[in-house]
Design a protein around this nucleic acid. Structure first.
Length: 638
DNA sequence: TTGCTGGTAAACAGGG
DNA sequence: GCCCTGTTTACCAGCA
């Protein structure tokens, strides 16, 4: 597997992450010199701005591409090769478009090819940057290189995981290697001139003396500096990028230029080695002022190598840092670096994943239509368990679902399904929700708030392509969950047995995690990017009281406790956006049902819900806080 | 390390 | 006997 082999090449020994300060203009530098603080770090808000600007830029390109692709004869480029994907799209963040759009635009093989290209590009990026650092900076900077590589590894792994999970988009990024394959020499030369500031590629090559100029014969005509010709196995390229249509190359060039121009004119670099001081205002910086790089030369004491591709590399790393920050993977966070398993296992996981799509079904697109979604996920999604296959998967091939993160991190199932319902219908991607959440959603989505087992089965298969196979496994799981969780109540009616949801019981299940985990709260709040607004929220939920342990089925505790994760608090908002979910109020969700067994307890259970619902609706929330509102426990409003 | 939670597998029983 | 439904138990893994 190409990804596996590529991953192995970038494995390094973890070292300390201290001393890496980041400061990125990356297009976001247009915001002014206030981005960096005294420590040279960029604030999350600035990074969000950066991401948004990049997203807008890529979205423009995407729209242009779609317009021309649909209206021009060139659109048959896609038709000619069903697995050919415009490189510009492959490098574009699917965050810019929804999975539905992606699926409408591209056929399943194209989607698959697109995702594979994204993976390949990311891996190339990591490797390329690694090698360039080696050839340019010298051995004295080894520690610094390792730090960068770790960041890249981490980012790469995270991206792959999230991409597999279908929840997080890739950021638009490019590598020199990918550029070589995606762009014609003239494009590369022009781009190089822009990025490096070197007037011509010939001069660039001259300045590249001392670098590794060993060339790949296939690239011998490329005017791109040969430092970019670090050997990457041919098999690491996905789906014939070598014959990318020129039109796409041109668009790719345009797209890349858009963000390289965004902060052109300065030689600001986003990172600084340990002990060096970042400039107080990077917009005041100019060529030659950087402690590591200036006038095309490495300024590390004793190095003095010509580093003409440093500028380019800086852009790459800059983007990586922005991506990492976007995904809440600050270099200062040590935890992920202590998990080499993620990287080591990525190959096998990817391999398994590829095997999971034998019929060319689209891989999990970076499906989150809203940029909020990946942020919500928090760092835990980096875990290999996020993938829908697992190392201890059993013979049935389904593999245990180890993605409780989605529930824990407050991903509203209604919102997710509303945004990506088409995707889940068509893509063989495991939904990132627990069986209980899905069952509940299915039941509550039904007109009568009740479903037979078979109807639940049908809902699963109808809504999720994933559940159209291995039926024995997940059906057993469904039955198991129905029986196990006391929130699911079996009701005998004229048609037979139907299952309903005891909302109170369901809401009792989870809250302790939410309120009892400061880390979780912190992740969620910071991920949402609502700083001040969530401060009060954090206080409130900390003051909440909740700890309930599971009791035997049908025994209820009349404690006000409302879950945080999915349907009940989200459906209304989602429906306002035109989702496929019904509009339900909390009261509707906990509508009384006639339970043949223990009817008295049902009556008791209805009381707190009514009270709760009344409280909930009595407090209007600003519409702008919709996403926040989705994830807020209702008790916060009390 | 422990407890909780979730996913999977399997056994079992009852009914059609 | 087979299948479906429902229950229960065991085991494992992730997480706090």
């Amino acid at each position: 597997m190409m990804v596996e082999s590529a991953s192995e090449t970038i494995r390094t020994t973890p070292s300390n992450q201290n001393g890496i300060s980041s400061q990125s203009d990356g297009g976001g530098g247009r915001e002014g010199g206030s981005n960096g603080d005294a420590n040279g770090e960029i604030s999350p808000v600035d990074l969000l701005h950066l991401q948004q600007q990049q997203a807008l830029q890529a979205a423009r390109q995407f729209l242009l591409q779609q317009a021309s692709g649909l209206n021009s004869p060139g659109s048959n480029e896609v038709k000619q090769s069903p697995v050919q994907v415009p490189v510009s799209m492959a490098m574009m963040s699917p965050q810019m478009i929804t999975p539905q759009q992606m699926q409408q635009i591209l056929s399943p093989p194209q989607l698959q090819a697109l995702l594979q290209q994204q993976q390949a590009l990311m891996l190339q990026q990591v490797r390329c940057s690694h090698t360039h650092l080696h050839c340019q900076l010298g051995t004295k900077q080894l520690a610094f290189q390792q730090q960068l590589i770790q960041m890249q590894q981490l980012q790469q792994q995270h991206i792959l995981n999230l991409q597999r999970q279908g929840l997080v988009p890739l950021q638009p990024t490019a590598t020199m290697q990918s550029l070589q394959q995606a762009m014609c020499p003239s494009d590369l030369q022009q781009l190089w001139k822009e990025v490096s500031g070197v007037p011509s590629s010939e001069e660039a090559l001259k300045q590249a003396e001392g670098l590794d100029l060993s060339t790949n014969s296939s690239n011998s005509t490329s005017a791109f500096p040969k430092a970019a010709s670090v050997h990457i196995p041919v098999h690491s390229l996905a789906n014939g990028q070598s014959h990318t249509p020129k039109r796409d190359r041109a668009r790719l060039f345009e797209w890349i230029s858009s963000f390289t121009k965004a902060d052109s004119g300065d030689d600001h670099v986003p990172f600084y080695p340990k002990g060096s001081q970042p400039p107080s205002s990077h917009h005041e910086e100019h060529a030659g002022s950087h402690p590591l790089y200036g006038h095309g030369e490495c300024k590390w004491p004793g190095c003095e190598l010509r580093c003409i591709c440093c500028r380019f590399k800086m852009k790459i790393i800059e983007r990586l840092q922005a991506m990492m920050a976007h995904l809440h993977m600050r270099p200062s966070e040590p935890k992920p670096f202590n998990q080499p398993l993620n990287l080591a296992s990525s190959g096998s996981l990817l391999k398994r994943d590829s095997e999971a799509y034998p019929e060319g079904l689209p891989h999990p697109p970076t499906s989150a239509a809203t940029p909020i979604t990946p942020l919500r996920q928090g760092p835990s999604v980096i875990s290999s368990s996020s993938l829908h296959t697992h190392s201890h998967s059993h013979t049935h091939g389904v593999g245990p679902i180890r993605r409780r993160n989605s529930d824990k991190y407050c991903t509203p199932i209604a919102s997710e399904l509303a945004q990506n319902c088409e995707f889940y219908k068509n893509a063989d991607v495991r939904p990132p929700f627990t069986y209980a959440s899905l069952i509940r959603h299915a039941i509550l989505e039904s007109p009568d708030r009740q479903l037979t087992l078979n109807e639940i089965y049908n809902w699963f298969t109808r809504k999720f392509a994933y559940f159209r196979r291995n039926t024995a496994t997940w059906k057993n799981a469904v039955r198991h969950n129905l029986s196990l969780h006391k929130c699911f109540v079996r009701v005998e009616n004229v048609k037979g047995a139907v299952w309903t949801v005891d909302e109170v019981e369901y809401q009792k299940r989870r809250p302790p995690k939410m309120t009892g985990s400061p880390t979780l709260v912190k992740n969620m709040i910071s991920g949402l990017g609502f700083g001040s607004l969530n401060a009060s929220y954090q206080v409130r939920i900390t003051l909440s009281t909740p700890f309930l342990t599971r009791t035997h089925k049908h025994r209820h505790l009349n404690m006000l406790h409302v879950g945080h994760d999915d349907v009940s608090s989200t459906v209304e908002q989602v429906n306002s956006n035109g989702s496929c979910s019904p509009t339900l109020s909390p009261q509707q969700y906990s509508h009384p049902v006639h339970v043949k067994e223990e009817p008295t307890e049902v009556e008791e259970d209805s009381r707190p819900v009514s009270l709760l619902a009344g409280v909930t609706h009595s407090l209007p929330l600003p519409s702008d806080d919709r996403d926040l509102e989705e994830d807020l426990p209702t008790e916060e409003l009390e």
